[in-house]
Amino acid sequence: MLLKKTKQLENKVNNFLDIINDAGPFLVTGLDSYFNDDEEKFDNYLEKLIKLENKADGIRRNIETQLYEKTLIPEARADVLSLLEALDDIIDRISGVIREFNMEIPDIHPKYHKNYLLLSEYAQNAVDQIIRASRYFFNDPVEARHCLPKVYHWEEEADDISGELIRNVFRDPDIGKLSIKLHHRMFVDRIDRVADISEDIADKLSIFTIKRSI
């Protein structure tokens, strides 16, 4: 009976991680459809993302309630809840980026599309690695620590490319208006924030894994 409930809880955590993982590629595909002016696809991605975001919120709340009601993992409960909330921030941020593209319709010159897509890809890679590390955290804390350097690597790559992008935009004579330059910076920062959140979670995980070892 207890093991059955435990199995259900494990499934819920896995579902939650799957949802965050599934949301990662929407950053690249969403931006790609935006740059190609494929409005239908873009709206479709946004709709799917919002659904995933709501689903993730629901599962997270359910897990939180179960952990508190059944007083499970009292020693690690705060860490687990903090991890789940931080992971939830990832999907919130991804859906936020796509929604902001939809609302603000930034004017991005085609010569920057490639770098924007590259930045999104690096951020997505950081998300993939942090999800992998999080999965290990629940089963094998030692292995989780091995994944963390990869998160830091992709976050650094994302920082580099976002720095390069902003530098180029502000030096670009083709973009005359400061408002457009600032708009660029805002969107680059928003996408880079996804990688930054992954890095913050990695920092937390490195502590949580130490606490989890007996």
Partner: peptide, 8 residues
């Protein structure tokens, strides 16, 4: 072992 099973 998963954190939840280990708890049990």
């Amino acid at each position: 072992i998963s954190i939840f099973r280990l708890d049990i």
